[in-house]
Amino acid sequence: MNSTAIFINIFALGCLIVSLVKDRAKTKQSIKVAIKSFFRILPTVLIIIIFIGLLLGFVPPSVISKIVGEQSGFAGILLVALFGAIVHIPALISFPLAGSLLKSGASVAAVAAFIATLTMIGTITLPLEIKELGKKMALLRNGIGFIIAIIIALIMGIML
């Protein structure tokens, strides 16, 4: 077990104990919410885990770096950014995928673009966003979000 896992478990346990001391009923409700969200996220987690296995098993690093590596340039970043905007993966489990892509030859900018658009932009949730916040605000948020995601990715590519 690594330090992040240890830290996050201790942190969660600490919060749980504080909550339990303060209010038993609320804690019980929290655990219920936690179990529900765990099972809701589980299918996606398993998909990503299988996908990472297949990716690392079949696609050699040379191919990955050709498509999303340094030499793919701006087109590669744009491609990944579009992919991130369309797919609907909880950010939490996109990090292992992003990490393995980075290790197998993807560029920092491409990986950053993927995470940035994935978190910032929701194509699947867009109808709901329009319904709740109006067309103007929802489209502006997603549109400008896409642009700043690419700017962040480019800056990170230069920095790291």
Binding site: M1, N2, T4, A5, I8, N9, F11, A12, L13, C15, L16, S19, T27, Q29, S30, I31, K32, V33, A34, I35, S37, F38, I41, V45, I48, I49, I50, I52, G53, L56, G57, L92, I93, P96, S100
Partner: peptide, 24 residues
């Protein structure tokens, strides 16, 4: 299977704690 299993173990150590935090 090795690659998938490794990530599975990583996630299973982190995920429940994150879910508990989210619930709280």
């Amino acid at each position: 299977t090795t690659a998938s299993w490794e990530f599975f173990i990583e996630m299973i150590w982190i995920l429940p704690a994150v879910m508990v935090l989210m619930g709280l």
